[in-house]
């Protein structure tokens, strides 16, 4: 009887600690919360949240640069997920005695670490473990499939002025995009630059001669002719092997651009593009 009481007290106090009203200001972490079963506890999200569909129905309270502190407090949250650089907001939350979960983008492994941390903070340890392990297993499967295959040298483009070769932003030697590409069996041509991204000049792209140009876009391209027009400008760099061998590939959708639980989809799609 005594032990049962202890157990009940333990469970009740654990339940009391478990946040019931979570606000997430980081879209990638909103996705994680829903993926680990903490979705029903989320009461508001950022203005940029688009996934999962349930999240889009929740009230929006600003984002990285413009969090609406007043609305956040009025929603009486017991946990606010903030980005690491939102120090003013974190200070205000502390004054209002609201705990925060501070996050910064990191590499690929950091996604799973963050999911497990969120699981511990929201009372979904087991589900977070299952979700994170599921992603890890899928990534390991991709790694196993591409192991031993020749690794093409890839230019991973995530930003470019439409219909031109200006302002080309590419992934470099750090960060989740670089890790995703590496897991998918590609070799980043700018891996030597110890940064998450750089602006690549046409000269560097010509000199580094990538075998594949992989371009990522959040939004979809409507049809074939629009796609041809989008990728057309690459034709100017005729000496680049990717252009010569028609291996300029566009991957669309948030799975390839958001460092969240859909990252395994992104890696699988990258691997399929690189090793068809």
């Amino acid at each position: 009887m005594f032990f049962v009481m202890i157990f009940v007290i333990f469970v009740v106090s654990f339940q009391a600690q478990r946040p019931q009203r979570i606000i997430s200001l980081v879209p990638a972490l909103t996705e994680m919360l829903f993926a680990i079963g903490a979705g029903p506890q989320v009461v508001a999200v950022s203005s940029f949240d688009e996934y999962p569909p349930e999240a889009t129905k929740l009230p929006r309270v600003g984002a990285l640069l413009d969090p609406d502190t007043e609305r956040i407090i009025s929603l009486t949250p017991d946990l606010v997920v903030t980005y690491g650089s939102q120090v003013d907001l974190q200070a205000q939350m502390k004054r209002a005695a609201i705990t925060t979960f501070d996050y910064r983008h990191g590499g690929l492994a950091h996604i799973m670490t963050t999911m497990r941390e969120l699981g511990a903070r929201t009372g979904h340890v087991a589900e977070a473990e299952t979700a994170a392990t599921g992603i890890e297993v899928r990534i390991a499967a991709v790694r196993a499939r591409v192991a031993g295959k020749p690794r093409p040298r890839v230019l991973l483009v995530f930003g470019r002025e439409p219909r031109s070769l200006r302002n080309i932003y590419v992934s470099a030697g750090r960060g989740f995009l670089h890790d995703m590409l590496e897991a998918a069996g590609g070799q980043d041509v700018f891996a030597d630059a110890d940064r998450e991204s750089i602006q690549a000049t046409t000269e560097h792209i010509l000199a580094r001669a990538p075998d594949v140009i992989l371009e990522l876009r959040s939004e979809n391209i409507p049809d074939e002719s629009a796609l041809r027009e989008e990728l057309g400008p690459w034709g100017r760099l005729a000496s680049v092997p990717a252009v010569r061998n028609k291996r300029v590939i566009l991957l669309t959708g948030q799975a390839v651009t958001v460092p969240g639980p859909r990252v395994a989809d992104g890696i699988e799609r990258m691997a399929k593009a690189l090793h068809p």
């Binding site: 046409t202 000269e203 560097h204 010509l206 252009v243």
Partner: peptide, 28 residues
């Protein structure tokens, strides 16, 4: 930022799509 050979860049006998030096000079 890259070293190119000018004689190769202006060498018309090399096909355009294989002449990296020419592309760096004329395109970049």
């Amino acid at each position: 930022s890259t070293d190119i050979s000018l004689s190769k860049a202006f060498d018309r006998s090399i096909p355009w799509d294989q002449n990296v030096d020419a592309q760096i000079f004329f395109v970049a």
